[in-house]
Structures are given as structure tokens and as C-alpha cells.
């Protein structure tokens, strides 16, 4: 079994039964940031794992570098992307999974999920965050 690890440090809590995106909060202004800012004026916060779809699109062609999925253009599978409004915090840009793009609707309830993305040279599976429709919605 291959090992898994997040594609970047300090992006989401892992390993975890209930992973959360890691943001930061400006202690003076109360503004939220994602990804987290490294500064004395910021405290790290775990962001809400549920929110509403604010807007979306579909990536229909294979992106050029720095995109790292190794795939021939004809084998590329389009993926949906959107912003999720996390109530009272911030809107985060994310891949959208678990739904046919034709079914996407602004305002729908979404929740965080951690998904395998690609394998690195060491054979480790890199994990990314994504949002999927909430089970309860």
C-alpha cells in the first residue's frame, strides 16, 4: 500500500477523521486568510468544513505547467472548480468533486473532502482538498 501525504504542509489538518482547511486570522482586524499567513499578527485557525457554492466553472482543457498531473491531452478528464463561502470566515477556491458539473448550482451546500491527486517520484500519493455536495442537502 502506498503512503499518502498532503500536497503541501499547513494546508489542511492531516491525518484526521474530520480534516479542516488551515487558515489564519488577523488578530487586529479579525480578517480571515487562506492559505494561512505566517506572521506575528496572525493566529492559525481551522476553517469550517461546510459552506455554500458561490460560483463555479469547469476546467475543460489540460492545464500547462505548473500543473503536475501527467496525462495525455486526450485522456484528460475535465474538473469543476469553484469558490465555497464558509459562513462568517472567507471564500476558498477549490476543486469540486462528487457531482456532475451539469448539476452544480450557486448556493448549494458543500462540504470538505480530502482526495488523492497524483503520485510523486517516491511513489507517495499526494492528497488535495476538494468540496463535494453535502450529504444532508
Amino acid at each position: 500500500m502506498s503512503t499518502q501525504k498532503p500536497i503541501a504542509d499547513n494546508l489542511f489538518t492531516w491525518p484526521s477523521d474530520s480534516p479542516k482547511l488551515i487558515g489564519s486570522k488577523d488578530t487586529e482586524t479579525g480578517r480571515y486568510f487562506f492559505p494561512a499567513k505566517n506572521s506575528n499578527q496572525h493566529e492559525k485557525v481551522e476553517l469550517s468544513n461546510k459552506g455554500k457554492l458561490w460560483t463555479w466553472t469547469v476546467q475543460r482543457f489540460l492545464p500547462k505547467t505548473p500543473y503536475i498531473e501527467q496525462v495525455a491531452p486526450e485522456d484528460f478528464k475535465p474538473y469543476a472548480v469553484g469558490y465555497i463561502e464558509l459562513p462568517g470566515e472567507i471564500m476558498v477556491e477549490s476543486r469540486l468533486v462528487g457531482i456532475d458539473p451539469k448539476e452544480l448550482e450557486i448556493g448549494m451546500e458543500m462540504e470538505l473532502t480530502i482526495e488523492p491527486f497524483v503520485k510523486n517520484e517516491e511513489g507517495e500519493e499526494l492528497l488535495i482538498f476538494a468540496f463535494k455536495p453535502s450529504v444532508n442537502s
Partner: peptide, 16 residues
Amino acid sequence: WYGETGLMLTTQFFGM
């Protein structure tokens, strides 16, 4: 990671 995971495309921004 933002570019590696396929979020850094101007075309996506315009669509969204």
C-alpha cells in the same frame, strides 16, 4: 500547490 493542482488559470477566473 496552487499551480500544481490546476487552480491557477486565468480562464477559470473569467468563467467564475
